[in-house]
Amino acid sequence: MTVKVAVLGVGVMGANHADQLTNLVAGADVTVINDYDDERANAIADAIPGARVVSDPFDAIVAEDVDAVVIATPGPVHEKQVLACLEAGKPVLCEKPLTTDVESSLEIVKAEAALGKQLIQIGFMRRFDDEYMKLRALVESGELGAPIMLHLAHRNPAVPDHFDSAMIVKDCLVHEVDCARFLLGEEIKSVHILKPRPNSNARDGLQDPQFAIFEMESGRMVDAEAFVTTGIAYEVRSEAIFERGSAQIGLDVNLVRKSAPGIWGGTVTPGFKERFGRAYHDQLQRWVNAVKRGDETGNYVDGPRAWDGYAAAAVCDAGVRSLTTSTRVEVDMVDRASIPGA
């Protein structure tokens, strides 16, 4: 079986997905491309044998030559597009955010659960990265005892001019939210966003960097730095502190060089595609494989689900409120057990 895929939204992320599905992922064909920019859509489709452009995303979702959908459109349109995929009974890999508000994310969780099928996968690709999987396995093994704390860092060289302080929470810290939940296997209870002195290179009014404190359900503590105007490179690091040791990932230590006159160092990853390129591929490959098995199992996903998108939205909502009020804010979430199948 070859899974025929529609890609909605072919900006940087969607174009990368379309390219990987076409050239690197086994068992998938990109048959339909959709984007609000017809010129961009046609340029992407022209490079993919057999692909065609469908201007309306909802027509793309229900097209007969589409088995599954990748959503990489702007966040505000995700809700209707994901619900359309559920209505059509088609598996969907949705880039974060699931939706842009907590209420609609919860409604999607409920709608999927009512179907009795698992159709929605969320694009938290770090869960497919080899280093993150090894750190999660170390946590689960108990080899170093119980984890006590996590230190997380997310640094970008720059962000677009339209980025505001809340977007740092919703578009950058959201990854650390999912990493904390993934690595520790529990929900986040509260968020406190601290505001250091802004970077002089940050645009006026942009609170950058930000420092978040997550309190987990068990009482474990997580700190997460988001610094998106470093002007240097793309850095993502995680360190877990255990009862009997520690472990760190994201150090970029494949090559460390020493040279005269007294220079020590190497290179730093220039961007997210270089750092997580393999993770994006493995995410797509495992998703395609799950879609192939889905008719037999009723589970068309292999990775973070709609619930994880809802949980991230709830934590980020609390984070934005904390950013505004400079106080610790409790995360307001329903009990997962109250939604059978979530």
Rank of each mutant, 00 (worst) to 15 (best):
N289C: 03
R181A: 13
Q248M: 13
G265R: 05
R336A: 15
G219Y: 12
D67K: 07
R220K: 12
V174W: 07
G298C: 07
A247D: 07
K273R: 13
V191F: 01
I120P: 00
V54E: 05
A313D: 07
V82Y: 01
K110S: 00
V12S: 07
V236D: 04
C316L: 13
E235H: 15
S141H: 08
E235T: 15
I71Q: 00
S104T: 12
M1G: 09
D37V: 06
V159F: 07
P49S: 06
P304L: 05
L184W: 10
K80T: 07
V139F: 04
V256I: 11
I168C: 12
T324S: 13
Y280V: 09
G50P: 04
T324E: 14
S259G: 10
G341T: 05
A146N: 13
K273T: 14
R278V: 12
M1H: 10
E239I: 15
A15T: 09
K170H: 14
R127P: 08
L8R: 01
M216G: 08
R237H: 14
V268C: 13
K292A: 03
G205A: 05
T269S: 11
S218M: 13
E235Q: 15
F242Y: 06
A63F: 03
Y132C: 05
H162F: 15
S190L: 09
A158Q: 14
R244V: 08
V174H: 06
I122H: 02
R336Q: 14
L106D: 01
S190E: 07
A158D: 14
T99P: 05
V291W: 00
V315R: 03
H162Q: 15
L152N: 01
N156G: 13
F211K: 10
L173D: 06
R237F: 11
R197H: 14
V315C: 07
N289I: 06
D282G: 03
A202H: 05
I61S: 00
G75W: 09
P340L: 11
E225A: 14
N42P: 10
E143Y: 14
G250C: 08
L83C: 04
E131Y: 08
G205W: 11
E239G: 11
V222F: 08
Y310C: 01
K258T: 15
T100I: 14
D223H: 15
A45C: 04
M167F: 12
L255E: 14
V253T: 15
P160I: 11
E330G: 10
G265W: 08
G303Q: 02
N289Q: 05
F227I: 04
G266N: 02
E186K: 11
T31S: 02
V191A: 02
V236C: 12
K195A: 02
P160Q: 09
